[in-house]
Design a protein around this nucleic acid. Sequence first.
DNA 1: TTGAAAGCGCTAACAC
DNA 2: GTGTTAGCGCTTTCAA
Lengths: 343, 343
Amino acid sequence: MKKKILIHDVANHLDVSIATVSLVLNGKAKEKRISDELAERVLRYVEEVGYKPNQLAKSLRTGKTNVIGLVVEDISNPFFATVAALIEQKALARGYHIIYCSTNDDAAKTRDLLSVFQARHVDGYILALPAGVEEEVRALVRSGKPLVLFDRLLPGLLTNAVVVDGASGMYDATRHLLGQGYTNIALVTARAGQLQMASRAQGYAQALRERGLPELVQEIAFPQVPEHILQEMETFFAAHPACHAVIFATNYLGVYGLEALGRLGRRIPAEMAVVSFDDNDLFRLYSPPITVVAQPMEAMAEESISVLLAALESPNTEGTGRMVQLQLAPQLVVRGSSLRLTS
Amino acid sequence: MKKKILIHDVANHLDVSIATVSLVLNGKAKEKRISDELAERVLRYVEEVGYKPNQLAKSLRTGKTNVIGLVVEDISNPFFATVAALIEQKALARGYHIIYCSTNDDAAKTRDLLSVFQARHVDGYILALPAGVEEEVRALVRSGKPLVLFDRLLPGLLTNAVVVDGASGMYDATRHLLGQGYTNIALVTARAGQLQMASRAQGYAQALRERGLPELVQEIAFPQVPEHILQEMETFFAAHPACHAVIFATNYLGVYGLEALGRLGRRIPAEMAVVSFDDNDLFRLYSPPITVVAQPMEAMAEESISVLLAALESPNTEGTGRMVQLQLAPQLVVRGSSLRLTS
DNA sequence: TTGAAAGCGCTAACAC
DNA sequence: GTGTTAGCGCTTTCAA
């Protein structure tokens, strides 16, 4: 059990006061006009013995933890995993650490998480939240802690946010299918009351409306046992034999959808054209490769952390600070799964 | 900016001492024989005003943070993302939180991470480490903090560990291919000096040795630019036209491998039988579905956290505590990608 | 330039 | 049963 070395030990050894050591370590040497020679000596010794200030004590004293709370729907979902990895990397580069949690789209669990993060005094939040926690987030905003919503907004809540324009992504996707000659286009979406889903559905609806075509929307309850999801989808496809094109509103729906279509023996795109929101390895390498509406992951991560850190480091301590609402453009990536083979 | 409520405020309001409040909140009411009535009153008020003890102060005082440091190779890798999600969930259920970081298999970055986790006083560690940090881990063990290595061991280091028996998994996979009549079986692995890779390679080698067949091993440098990996693989496959079966030693190599084979126009399994370590959606839904050596994710997560918490909550404070080394069995899942179509 | 000392908010030993 | 109080290790003001 190695003895933990304290600032006191450092000061003692160097025969200076702990204040001096602290000042030097916090870059206030110049300001306090501590001799370069002494400062250098402190730094050297600290390096030598590997002294690391106790972050708990430091945080308790300064009120700053250098920790960011990241709340996502499900860290094992490739979309969130990828964004999380990017956010982590960018945060680290700026001296921040990440505590993360998955909500599983459960409002009660989310409330707990937020309150735990608060008790842990995270410096700021990056949040992809389920519906139903508006009140808690409002309270969080009022508490003065910076936060940025990402992936999805919360109804009636005006705060920093970085989202993707799902409506235009879906509009493009639907127009693409229409352009390929499909007219009976289904949308499979999640029944979760999440705002980004509504906006995606709206983009789809608008494209059809412009052409005077009817919508065909199937909402899948989520989260849910995989087998149920597959069955719901199979039932849906079986009930709509005239439908030869489908758009899945999220990556996991797309994955389940491919599995369901596989079970039904529907060939893609000959018997069913497929487009999914979100890109991933599966869609890219599937045969045929799946046309997707790709979200700009890198940009989402970068913007989320930038907006948060800007708020964190801005001088205006009060809620009067400026607010940033970013809407990033997704990109339609056309692949084989949505091309009309025979016209 | 809502006023933060302190234990002092609670005590004042209830007209009791802060000690009483603290004792009640920490479940020491009975022990200290505080009247049930009073305890109840405290609890009720605390609930009512939503008082949450400042975890920083608590941790500083008790030396316990209820935070576990999770270090993985890359959180966006589906294997680690899935295990991380499971670990997070299980940790949360036991009152622990997770701070995670990705090493990207970089020893220097890992050293930093470990030292940051240390400064943050995490209670314990769950680690999947790159080669080259043995010294640091040894120091960590000496420091008395519980830790468990998962996914891979570190050479010459005897600590708690939860790993999968990659050798037997690969042995089974190779035997399976041999059973299908393939004799020219390649192994594509990562050149990273990681112990679990060596063990996987060894299982492959043993199966071939038993049959007196030659090995054909291609090591890919990793991490690495995707395009390079693809080219290395393509070159390899092109250089070995007689090879009609390949095993990929990790999920990401499998994914790149499928892409490379696709580019080369090799049909699976007709022209090339494929098996990969790790399972995921892509392998399951690919056509043909890919035969895999599936790791028991759920068990890995459960055992890792159990072993860690056991160490954490055991009374023996010293390094004399018992050590647990678990080796879990992977499972060969045979799918279409490795079946001999014509004999 | 440097050192002493007052907390940050909480826990728990000890006194009553 | 309950209240007082000494720290946990650090930052930072203020006096020297």
